[in-house]
Write a protein that binds this DNA or RNA. Structure first.
Lengths: 332, 332
DNA sequence: TTTGGCACTCTTGGTTTCTGAATGCTATTT
DNA sequence: AAATAGCATTCAGAAACCAAGAGTGCCAAA
């Protein structure tokens, strides 16, 4: 257990380092805590023994270790109020109730990214359990059509598909009507099954070009479920941080950001706002991830910020928290 | 006018520099052209006098000047056949006729970006003169609905909008029917005008909640035209080139790529495949842009590649040319 | 327990030195 | 006249070196 002074010291060091990105010297601290630098040095040595601080070389100032950040986040950092400015910016989103939920989430995270210069991630909005509200099809040429599926949550997907043979507009319409009668209300993830077992028998019976039409619609609507979309914003902002003053480090991170699988991996499973520091982020030792799960009326997903390990954790947490709460409060 | 040997020499230097990114020495050349290095040096000096070559310092090898590249591109470089591999990769797109035009263009340019490691840009696919084929609307809650507009070319746009008051599903349906009767066939760019002057009077007359509904649809469909979309692919690839081994150069380019206005500016106006070298690119002195205009059945736009000034111009041109030709040949 | 003092360490930035890869030029050969 | 061999010269880049400054650790005194 740390003494009060050690706590104070760790706090000062972490916060100073977050701000300046340079190792913190005993001299800098002693001006704030008004005691001699030697005293601070002794305490620093103690904190280093505990594994909370590190040096970059034998005679350098101290920087927080991963464990130091962890301790800071878990035990020292206080919940922070959002500053007026941050809140004001976000309110433009949540006050504006012409935005649908998913847009509001994305837009607000974009704002957060602009405010903090971290990378914002919105995952999910998984529409797999949205239910079919309506399908529609528009022939676009002799042998192509655009098939559209609309869900009860207002999600729209469309595909352009080939018709193997020429099919009359009437037949397309007839098929659309049949499909609409049979699959409205079932979840997107079960559409392809329903097409095969419910729809096919019926159109086989009533529609002349049933084979071409069935194949076309089946192709159009068979691959919806897996689309777990990843929205990122401000990917390059992070690269302005001094830890990425190195070309190879920069390229490394850039490559990681291209890898959507890695990003999807950020998906949050737990309630609450969780912080993953350095290696815990499983992305890069110099970055941290703060993320939370959200859910509202069956829509669920993850919002996350990727920042340097020197992230303003308190502010980031306050921002995510504010968004999460406002998602809950939205009137849809 | 250059002598045959000077031509040959310039060609070798440009191509070697493109490949290796290092200044080309007289020694390296004399092994290929079998004559002594001194001879080459004399010729090099001549080419430098003409402004075709440069040195990075007094005793360095030569690199092409912007004018040198220009001369190479205009007078030396031969039209190149696509290699079998490049063609094979692209054929997966153009042979697959289940892809709609705009998707085929985007996908093929993505492939080109992967093949070359340059940044691919697709501009336009401007659907402003697509004609409305159908509109649709799905209420998604008490006071929200999703409005969808489908064009004759199979382009789909959707918006989530607020209904100011509660409106019954029947009324929504009734309004959709009226709008469909009145605006099918008119170009997207004129939808908002048509809504105001054709549709409004009718629904004012026949629909009870006409105000809420009109406003909702107007909001949904009033901002289609301006969406000149910019698709970029492989933005970070370019940064692997050695000219961007410098952190600040890298950040500079990254920032430029974020600026969509700058990218839109690449829009091609002329027929043919045009090459803009270095400062001509108006993006960065170290990069070149190769671009062309395409059009097919009223759809038009620009495809472009952004690469280092050390771009394989012949290959890039062959690739763009192949895509452009295949766009023309597509059966839709 | 705190602090002043001092020796020690290591980074950072600047200067120097060295080597090798080029060039330009001149004198010579073809 | 054109090509080449030879040689002095230039310069980048790496390694070595140096000096200054910012830190630390530790000991002995307050």
């Amino acid at each position: 257990m740390l003494t009060a002074r050690q706590n104070e010291l760790l706090k000062l060091i972490v916060e100073d380092y977050i701000k300046t990105a340079r190792p913190v010297s005993s001299k800098a601290i002693c001006e704030i805590m008004n005691c001699s630098s030697a005293t601070i040095r002794n305490e620093m040595a103690a904190l280093e023994d505990y594994g909370l601080l590190e040096k970059t070389h034998t005679s350098s100032g101290r920087i927080p270790s991963d464990y130091g950040y962890r301790y800071y986040v878990d035990n020292i950092m206080k919940p922070k109020e959002l500053t007026g400015e941050d809140m004001l910016k976000l309110q433009t989103i949540f006050k504006n109730n012409s935005l649908v939920l998913s847009d509001a989430i994305i837009k607000s995270m974009e704002i957060v990214s602009e405010l903090t210069n971290y990378t914002a991630i919105v995952l999910g909005t998984s529409s797999a359990d949205n239910k079919v509200a309506k399908i529609e099809a528009i022939p676009t040429s002799e042998n192509h059509m655009t098939a559209i599926i609309i869900t009860d949550k207002g999600h729209v997907e469309n595909r352009n598909v080939v018709l193997e043979k020429h099919v009359s507009r009437d037949e397309v319409k007839q098929t659309v009507d049949i499909i609409n009668k049979l699959i409205v209300g079932i979840p997107l993830s079960e559409v392809s099954k329903a097409l095969e077992f419910e729809v096919k028998p019926v159109i086989d019976k009533y529609v002349k070009q049933h084979e071409a039409l069935y194949n076309a619609f089946y192709n159009a609507f068979s691959d919806f479920a897996p689309r777990a979309d990843v929205k990122m914003h401000g990917t390059t902002k992070l690269l302005n941080e001094p830890e990425f003053n190195d070309v190879t480090k920069m390229r490394e991170l850039l490559n990681k950001f291209e890898d959507k699988e890695l990003i999807k991996h950020i998906k949050a499973n737990e309630e609450g706002i969780n912080i993953y520091i350095g290696s815990e982020s499983e992305i890069d030792n110099d970055i941290s991830v703060i993320k939370t799960y959200y859910t509202k009326d069956g829509v669920e997903g993850t919002i996350a910020l990727i920042g340097p390990k020197r992230m303003e954790y308190d502010r980031a947490r306050a921002l995510l928290n504010y968004i999460k709460e406002n998602i809950g409060k939205m009137d849809r």
